[in-house]
Structures are given as structure tokens and as C-alpha cells.
Design a binder for these strands. Structure first.
Lengths: 235, 235
DNA sequence: CGGTGATGTGTCGCATGCCACTCTCGGAGA
DNA sequence: TCTCCGAGAGTGGCATGCGACACATCACCG
């Protein structure tokens, strides 16, 4: 675990470091860790470490076990299913609403983020690419005007990242991911809300299928995300 | 603030007590409170109080202000809009999925909860009614098989409760609320997934409109929740 | 040899100490 | 009377003290 940078509040730094450690797999899912040891490694006291872990626990990344330690939770197939069901329910409608609400400056910023993502993909810089991927989604969701939605989805991504970061390349190239984002971006810029939402749905669903198939291995895939598709007609 | 019961972990007790205090309005939105004082009132040390407040802060109910105290956040019109947009996006699809997945025993339990809600309404016991209301929604959402969704929506309700608990009666009677739930329950029992989902959407939307109108007072109501309506047809 | 109980180590949960910072309030000076 | 400033009280953030409990180890007994 790397040492902390010098700036900013200790609590925030610790939270960032621990989250990164979990995502990167440095803190192995299923294993128990002691607050004391983590604090020593980070060069701080137990308090901020414990507080950061409480936040991660609320997010579902770890779990405290009394007098035993804190366990990094592993994401089961069912966890993936839950996360992607939520993303499918939230992201497409949010994108639909974001179209037309995006200021020109935001649109430009969005494209800038996309270009950076594209560049990272070309450079085979997986980590940087996922950073921009995240910013892309976040910017789009925030434009929908619902900060809670944006923040929640952003948190959900953490649960998937530690699956995706190390293994996505095996199943699909970074270029494919970029292409899906390009489609979304183009439709957003064209102002076609429904098509953009549909593209987002397909993108998320595609990601879900690949991750779930990979996680399930050769076993039977018992996953149903179809119910997340909007079919209501109230008028 | 009432003294703590004797049982269970201190942290949990404190969390429950603080959440109840915020919802009941005992801790006034907009005001600053000191961890030390809260701890003394609850008869515990600062640590569990601080940890509970951290959880409430993550949920958006309070905010820490360094060297000043912890502020109970007030829910603005926009907050209500955000919360109900999320509920409209999540609850109807979840209900649609819950139908047909509910075991007979769960169905029976759901009806039992409804009957208790009805009884509390008859007795004009507002608080108990909202307790059962919450359990009703929670049971339905959990039946959809997505624990994260259920937990998240449950958390969202806290943001609204401290508006609704004291004021709902001014705008609509408890019986009306019960009637909407009866509609949902009947459709769920009849196995009509789409209709149940539609009923849930209308229930949530109705609640949103009343709370938002009441919050806005006579001022202009600039709220748009229509975008949460599912209109996708991907095939 | 197998089972069992004591003991030691490590852990969290909770209490407390300490520090830098913010805000208040009163008094001195114009 | 008004302004300014400084001392004091109060706060959250972080560090640390302490006790009860979980688990592993190992000696001892059947």
C-alpha cells in the first residue's frame, strides 16, 4: 500500500487510498485485515482508517467482523446482477434527460473526456481509460440534474471495477468500449434523447453480459436483466 | 432525546436514536449540533455518536462542518424532486419483477403488513402507519431479489419522512394512502405485474405531487418527474 | 494417541486526551 | 458611539488508552 500524499484531509486521503487498494485487488476479497495494521501502513492512526472503512462498509465493499477484523467482500454473480440491474434502471433514463439539458460548455467537456478516453485506449493505458470512462458517465448523469443518482451510480461502479479493471481486456478490446461511448456521445450531441438512452442501455447491458459470462465461467448463467427494460405506458 | 434501551450494540442504538431524532424533527434541520452534547444526552462517548453521524452524513441527512458542529440538512424542493425521481425509476420496475416471485408465505406476510397499516390508519396512529408503510414497500422491493435496490430506496424514504410524517395529514387522509396500497396489493395478489407496477408508479407520483406542492407553498412549482416514465422499446 | 481446557495474542468497540481552528464577546481606543 | 482586536470557550479531527471477546496454541489429562 503506497504512502499518502501530503495534502488534503487525512480522512479523505485514507478513504481514497483504501478504495484504490480494494479496487486494485491489493486488499484481497475474502481476506481479513486489521485496522491497526492498515493504519500503520498508511502512516496514520486507527481513527481515520476506521472511519473510512465505515464508509466503504456502507457502500458494501467491506464488512466489520467484531474482534476479528474487517473483511473485503467478494462480489458474487448475484452482486453483479444487482449492480447492473440498478445501472440499467437508472442510466438510460438519466441520459435521456441529460440530452437537451447539457450546456454547450458541458458538451464540449464531455467530448474532451471522450477524446482522453480514446487516447488512453490507443496507448493501451487501461487504468487511465477507466478513469475517463467513469468521468464520462458521471458527467452525463450529473447533467440530468440528479446529484443523488449520479453519486449512487458512481458508487456502484466501484463494485464492478475490481472485476473489470483486470479482466475486461480478455473479453473485449478497449477500442470496442470506446466505440460504444462514441455512439452515445454522437447521439447526445445530435440531440436524439431516445436513441442516446437506448445506446446507453445497450452499452451497460453489453458490459454486464461480458462481465457476468466471464464470472460465471463455463457454469450455467442464471441471470435475468430483462425486467429492467422500461415497458410502462401510463397514458 | 430519549435515553437508550439497554440491549444491542451501542453504535446501532445511537444510529437508530439519531435517525429518529432527525426524522421527528427533534434535531431541527438547518441547526448545528455538537457531537459532545449529543453524546452526553445519549449517555455514551463521542466515538459511537460520531460514527453514527458519519453514516447519516453519507446518506445526506447531516453534514460535518469542521470546528463548527454537525448540521442537520434541510430538504429543499430539489431534494424532494431527486428522491422521487429515483423512487419512480426504481420502485415500479421492482414491483413488476416482484410479482410472480413472491412466495405464498411472503404474500401472506405482505397482506398482514397491509392489514396492520390499515388498522393503524383507522386508529389515527400516524407513526405506526408509516412504519408499516415502510415495511410494505421494503417487503415488495426485497421480493424483486435486489437487496441493494431495496436498501437504497429504504434510505431515500428517510429524506422524505421528516417532511411527510408531520404534514401528510393536512393534504390527504391516511385512508387515501391505505387505499393506494390496497390497489397495489390486490394487483400483486392477482399476479398482474404491469398493472401493479403502474399502480406503484401512480402511488409514488401522487405522494410526490402532494409533498412537492405543499413544500412549494403558493410559489411556482418547477418540478419535472415525467422523464422517469419508461418509454424504451428496444425491440 | 485423542480430546480438552488454560493461556496468550490479536482484534474491534468504546472512551478519552490533545490540538488547531472558528466564533463570540467584551473592552480599549478613536 | 462605533470599530477593532484579542482572549476565551467550544468544536471537529486525529491519536491513543482500555476492556471484552475470538481464536490459536499448547500443555495436560483420559
Amino acid at each position: 500500500m503506497k504512502q499518502l500524499p501530503a495534502t488534503a484531509s487525512v480522512n479523505t486521503q485514507v478513504l481514497t487510498a483504501l478504495r484504490a487498494a480494494v479496487i486494485s485487488g491489493e486488499l484481497v476479497p475474502g481476506n481479513l485485515y486489521s485496522v491497526q495494521v492498515l493504519a500503520t501502513q498508511l502512516g496514520v492512526s486507527r481513527t481515520p482508517v476506521r472511519e473510512a472503512l465505515i464508509k466503504l462498509a456502507q457502500q458494501g465493499m467491506v464488512r466489520f467482523e467484531r474482534n476479528r477484523g474487517v473483511r473485503v467482500l467478494l462480489t458474487s454473480l448475484h452482486d453483479l446482477e444487482e449492480v447492473f440491474a440498478l445501472r440499467l434502471l437508472l442510466e438510460p433514463p438519466a441520459v435521456r434527460r441529460a440530452v437537451g439539458r447539457l450546456e454547450p460548455a458541458q458538451l464540449k467537456e464531455l467530448r474532451r473526456t471522450f477524446v482522453q478516453m480514446e487516447r488512453a485506449a490507443k496507448a493501451d493505458d487501461e487504468f487511465t481509460m477507466f478513469e475517463h470512462d467513469r468521468r464520462f458517465h458521471r458527467a452525463l448523469l450529473e447533467a440530468a440534474g440528479n446529484t443523488r443518482l449520479a453519486a449512487y451510480v458512481d458508487g456502484l461502479r466501484d463494485m464492478v471495477l475490481r472485476r473489470g479493471v483486470s479482466t475486461a481486456r480478455e473479453s473485449r478490446s478497449l477500442d470496442d468500449i470506446v466505440a460504444e461511448h462514441r455512439t452515445i456521445l454522437d447521439l447526445v450531441e445530435a440531440g436524439d434523447a431516445d436513441a442516446a438512452a437506448k445506446a446507453m442501455r445497450e452499452h451497460v447491458q453489453h458490459t454486464a453480459e461480458l462481465l457476468i459470462a466471464q464470472e460465471a465461467g463455463s457454469g450455467p448463467v442464471d441471470v435475468d436483466l430483462a425486467w429492467t427494460e422500461g415497458v410502462m405506458r401510463t397514458h
